[in-house]
Design a protein around this nucleic acid. Structure first.
Lengths: 254, 254
DNA sequence: TTTTACTTTGCACGTTTATGCACGTTGTTT
DNA sequence: AAACAACGTGCATAAACGTGCAAAGTAAAA
């Protein structure tokens, strides 16, 4: 659990609440009161202000992250924790000064949040969510891929974005993973999304597949890249990873 | 904890406060007063000066690290109610089916939030915040302008974004307003930001200036557009708008 | 050295902000 | 319906704040 200064300034407290909100997607008034050592009344006042500012949505017992600020679909709190664990593992593959492609997707948004500050990283992304996660944090250069924003995907796709991506050389690529198979590789659902992922992967030295267990045996409609194009697999401890290790992938468990 | 000399020069003290600020992200007035052995009044004076110089943000009880490192997020929380009122007034100018340029800025994010759903609107923006405000809401087509993301502005700027904007025709433009003057028109602080605003305005049929009262008599460094390029002015009821009406602007009060 | 102009400081006073508590209301659970 | 937790509001208190002012300190001019 994060340390809290013994004397917390009122406005500082509000700021910390926002951070927790962005991290967990939810806050409980009673917990915050205990943590900051103030009455629940004060916490409620803070939440009221934040809600008025559109930063959160008040609910009975606490508050939830506002839909406008919420990364894609943060519905399931349990999945969030799993994705955060994967993200923490994934960012260990990143070295200072590197150039990264980060595709749209809720897992990748968590990766962006988990990236270390002040390491001179350059992030190229098609997702406003990822951009927002890095906005204002020190030590990041962010490049946004332009184009039509696809609602379901949560990022831009299309010729514009693909052309822009082709003009870049990156060290690492984190494509959003719909499905992975040991033999056939990475698959995607949407055609245009697929083209952008392919461009990203081709423009990168190494490709990291970050996938929860259920993505590992899943299937999708469009072929994105062969398994030989993937250099690392980041997944959960309970996954069957031996077969992936055998075909040359470096395994990282979150 | 760092030792402090028994006699500290005033300017030296300010410097040390900045260092603590950069290290901890926050300072408490009472702590500083004890440490430097001066009254809290003096500390407050220091903090006032530092805040005026943009080095920190004053809060009740002390100060927090300047908006340089946490730019848009904090500005978002300021004057929210006023900006929301302006936004509600601004969106009355929008008709179904229109194509809109929405520039980066905390007021414009509120405008995006206030836009009516299911009206087949197309929004072109350089701000991830604006994109996020519209993501997932029905009846919006969103186009993101690609390029390097500028932290302080909260949106992309540069040749990439300008070129993309030039290839579009829009009905309405909401440029982020730094300063407006009755005779000389719209002014902006950053050079590259300015170029993008100009491209947006030129690519639009009508231009709407949305500005709080204090922006109306303010000044900035770069000339963006003459007052004749502005078709509407959305501002607050207590503003002196007669002179703007006289030069042909349609006035909307929030 | 003395004089003068300027800066820095602490204090008094009135104002604003933050907080906790009491009390009545609303929402949730059983 | 009853029981309970969370909520909003009004209120009193204390801390922090801004301002004006006079004293103390400092630096350059006389």
């Amino acid at each position: 659990m994060n340390r809290v200064p013994d004397t917390t300034l009122p406005r500082e407290r509000a700021q910390l609440i926002v951070e927790r909100l962005q991290r967990d997607g939810r806050v409980v008034a009673a917990e915050l009161a205990a943590e900051f050592r103030v009455s629940e009344d004060s916490i409620r006042r803070d939440l009221r202000e934040l809600a008025a500012a559109g930063q959160c949505k008040r609910v009975y017992g606490g508050a939830l992250l506002a839909a406008n600020f919420a990364p894609l679909r943060q519905r399931d709190a349990e999945h969030i924790a799993r994705k955060q664990a994967l993200a923490r593992a994934a960012v260990t593959l990143v070295s200072p000064g590197q150039i990264l492609f980060i595709d749209a997707g809720s897992t990748n948004t968590q990766i962006a949040m988990a990236l270390p500050e002040r390491q001179d990283l350059t992030v190229i992304t098609n997702a406003p969510d990822v951009a927002n996660a890095l906005l204002g944090r020190p030590g990041f250069e962010v490049l946004l891929l332009g184009g039509r924003l696809h609602h379901h995907i949560g990022g831009t796709i299309g010729a514009q974005a693909v052309a822009q991506a082709r003009g870049i050389r990156a060290d690492l690529c984190f494509p959003g993973i719909c499905a992975v198979d040991v033999r056939s590789g990475i698959w995607t659902f949407d055609d245009e999304e697929n083209l952008l992922k392919q461009a990203m992967i081709e423009a990168s030295g190494e490709t990291v597949a970050v996938a929860t267990t259920e993505k590992l045996q899943a299937a999708a409609t469009h072929f994105t890249a062969g398994i030989d194009a993937v250099t690392h697999l980041v997944t959960e401890p309970n996954a069957l990873v031996d077969r992936y290790a055998k075909v040359g992938l470096k395994i990282v468990l979150g």
